[in-house]
């Protein structure tokens, strides 16, 4: 049911964009809403990150899963239990670029129908890393429609991505990888009962939204092509703050663009915030220095204490008189 709601929402949004533009609202779907969506994305994201930046983190709470640095003859696991900033940078880089913690994903299997064991399951990691990197490369490729003249690295990425020169226009490897990985991630969400049980509309919606964006993009490039030069003129109008709406753009493109606008606007209010969030996870980005240095909570209530030294100072004569041992004579 939750899945059907998400499918319905994405389909309806695509149709709104497409039919709206077909009905003559190109200016709304091509100029006003993209500007609004980018504004919502930037302001919403900045507000979220600044809110997180104001959360105090008085103590070191990294999740550790390896030997802490201790005696010289015990080998420390610097990535699993980072003792200093360089190790943290290494840990974070592998996390952000390589999704290292997803490698710990396990599956439960029964051997011979009797023995329960846990095995490594790399499928989630593979699906996630292919999807994310393909999306980044697809974003870089789209710069050819947002920049004039097109910088060399964009053309270079396009060349590599279309290396096999299959089809006309050339089918990009990342288009296929992106859609394939998304399809797998959706399949996984539906096929594993535990994952399906905890899946909400907020989990299905971004999946279907990305599938629809990728699918409509693929369709626009390979099936029903539109006048790409006019599309670029529209986009450059936006970046030059001199918007124009060329007449010869297919409504399908406005459906694609509207879904992208929805994605940008939805971003700061959704699970997609893991993008800035992964950088700010205190269980990942802190060095484990809980023993190396003393961390004092800055807003501790000032408790009145009476130390043993003070107690002995007060009662030393009486203690000596009673024959009790004292630390200072």
């Amino acid at each position: 049911m939750t899945m059907l709601i998400a499918v319905g929402l994405v389909t309806a949004l695509f149709l709104v964009g497409m039919l709206g533009a077909a009905a003559g609202l190109q200016w709304v779907f091509g100029v006003a809403l993209p500007y609004l969506a980018v504004g919502m994305f930037v302001i919403g994201l900045a507000a979220r990150v600044l809110r997180w930046a104001n959360v105090p983190v008085p103590f070191r709470i990294p999740t550790t899963c390896g030997q802490q640095r201790s005696l010289a003859w015990i080998r420390p696991q610097r990535l699993e239990n980072p003792p200093d900033t360089p190790s943290v940078i290494g840990r974070m880089a592998l996390e952000i670029l390589g999704f290292r913690s997803l490698l710990r994903n396990t599956k439960t299997v029964m051997i011979d129908g009797r023995r329960l064991t846990y095995a490594t399951d790399l499928a989630l990691w593979a699906g996630a890393i292919v999807m994310h990197w393909a999306m980044l490369i697809a974003l870089i490729r789209h710069l050819r429609l947002m920049t004039n003249p097109v910088p060399g690295f964009v053309t270079l990425v396009e060349r590599f991505d279309g290396f096999f020169e299959v089809g006309m226009p050339v089918i990009y490897l990342t288009s296929v990888a992106f859609l394939g990985a998304l399809a797998y991630l959706l399949y996984r969400r539906l096929a594993i009962p535990e994952v399906r049980y905890i899946s909400l509309v907020g989990d299905y919606f971004p999946l279907f939204l990305l599938l629809a964006i990728g699918g409509s993009g693929f369709w626009l490039r390979h099936v029903t092509t539109t006048d790409i030069a006019s599309v670029k003129a529209l986009v450059l109008g936006l970046t030059h703050f001199a918007p124009t709406v060329p007449a010869s753009i297919s409504p399908l493109f406005f459906g694609h663009l509207f879904l992208v606008s929805v994605l940008l606007a939805y971003f700061p209010f959704s699970k997609l915030l893991h993008m800035p969030g992964v950088f700010l996870s205190p269980t990942r980005n802190l060095a484990n220095t809980t023993r190396i240095s003393r961390h004092v909570n800055p807003w501790d209530y000032p408790v009145k204490v009476h130390t043993y030294a003070e107690y002995e100072d007060e009662l030393r004569d009486k203690m000596i008189g009673a024959g009790l041992p004292v630390e200072k004579d």
Partner: peptide, 12 residues
């Protein structure tokens, strides 16, 4: 890039 560019953004 658009701010610094002198290239015509319009379609040829």
């Amino acid at each position: 890039q658009a701010l610094g560019s002198t290239a015509d953004p319009a379609r040829p």
